[in-house]
C-alpha cells in the first residue's frame, strides 16, 4: 500500500452473462481490488447512476467504508458528471474497467475521460508496480500472458484488464453498512443515446473448429505461438514524413479514414 496517493476507482453495474442479472462487473471489481491494494482505505470508489442500485452494495462489501454516487437517471451521460467530479481534485490515478458489461459497453469512457481531463491513458493494466516521485511503473497486459512495463506520469487514467488480480469476495455485512455519499450534479441527458433503438443481440453461430494439428507438440505450438503479423513493417531510419505517410496509408487501407 502506498501512502499519500489519491486513487479513484470507477464502477458500473455489471450484467451476468448467463442470467442477465445485475452484478458486480468483472473488470470494475478488479479496478476496485487494484485500488484497494494501492490506497487501502483512502481509495475513493465512484459510481455515476442510481444510488439505490443494490449491486453497489456488492462493491462496498469488498471492504469500502464509503462509496460516492453521482446521482443521475439512466438516460444521462456519465461522462460530464465524472469529469466535473474528477477535475481539480488532486487525483493521481483513476482506474476503470476496459468496458462496461451493460449499457453502450463501447469501452470509450476511459478514453473520453482522458481526453477531457488531458491526462494520459494506460489501457489494459495488469498491475501497478510502483508509484513514486510523480511517476508510476505499470505493467500492461498483452495477449498470451505477456506483459509490458511502462512508466507513466501522474495523474493518469488506467483501464484494468482481466489479467489483473481478481476482485476479493464481497461480504454482506460491510456492504450493508457502507456509507453512500450521494452527490447531485447537473443533469446532462445523453441526446445521441436517446435516439437509439436497442435490440437484444443474438449469439453468432460459432465456426466449427477444425483441428489441423496431428501431434500434441503441434497443438501446443498452436496454443502458445504468437500470432505472426504478415504485413508488419518496422520503420526506424525513415523520416517523420515517411513514417506519417505509412500510417496514413494503413488507415486508408483499413478504411479507418476515407
Amino acid at each position: 500500500m502506498l501512502p499519500n496517493i489519491n486513487v479513484v476507482s470507477l464502477v458500473s453495474v455489471g450484467r451476468h452473462p448467463q442470467s442477465g442479472r445485475a452484478r458486480r462487473a468483472e473488470q470494475d471489481g478488479r479496478a476496485v481490488e487494484l485500488g484497494l491494494n494501492l490506497a487501502g482505505n483512502t481509495l475513493t470508489v465512484v459510481h455515476a447512476g442510481n444510488a439505490q442500485e443494490p449491486v453497489l452494495r456488492q462493491y462496498a462489501g469488498m471492504g469500502l467504508p464509503s462509496l460516492t454516487v453521482l446521482a443521475q437517471e439512466s438516460d444521462c451521460d456519465a461522462l460530464p458528471a465524472l469529469v466535473s467530479f474528477l477535475k481539480d481534485k488532486h487525483i493521481d490515478v483513476v482506474l476503470t474497467g476496459v468496458r462496461a458489461e451493460s449499457g453502450e459497453s463501447s469501452g470509450m469512457l476511459p478514453y473520453l475521460l482522458a481526453e477531457q481531463l488531458g491526462w494520459p491513458l494506460v489501457p489494459r493494466v495488469a498491475e501497478i508496480l510502483n508509484i513514486k516521485e510523480g511517476e508510476a511503473e505499470v505493467l500492461l497486459a498483452l495477449p498470451r500472458g505477456q506483459r509490458r512495463a511502462v512508466i507513466v506520469k501522474l495523474p493518469f487514467i488506467a483501464s484494468v484488464d482481466n489479467a489483473a488480480q481478481e476482485a476479493r469476495q464481497t461480504a454482506f455485512g460491510p456492504g450493508l453498512r457502507a456509507d453512500f455519499k450521494v452527490l447531485t450534479l447537473e443533469r446532462v441527458v445523453d441526446e445521441a443515446a436517446s435516439q437509439w433503438q436497442i435490440n437484444i443481440a443474438k449469439p453468432r453461430p460459432k465456426r466449427l473448429k477444425v483441428v489441423k494439428a496431428k501431434t500434441a507438440a503441434d497443438r501446443m505450438k498452436a496454443a502458445t505461438a504468437k500470432p505472426v503479423g504478415g504485413g508488419g513493417k518496422i520503420m526506424k531510419d525513415e523520416t517523420a514524413a515517411e513514417k506519417a505517410q505509412a500510417i496514413f496509408d494503413l488507415l486508408l487501407e483499413e478504411k479507418v479514414v476515407r
Partner: peptide, 16 residues
C-alpha cells in the same frame, strides 16, 4: 462469510 468475506477456495465463486 458475511463479515470478513473470507470463504475459502471456490466458496466466494459459488456464492457469487
Amino acid at each position: 462469510t458475511l463479515e470478513k468475506g473470507d470463504t475459502p477456495n471456490k466458496g466466494a465463486q459459488v456464492l457469487e
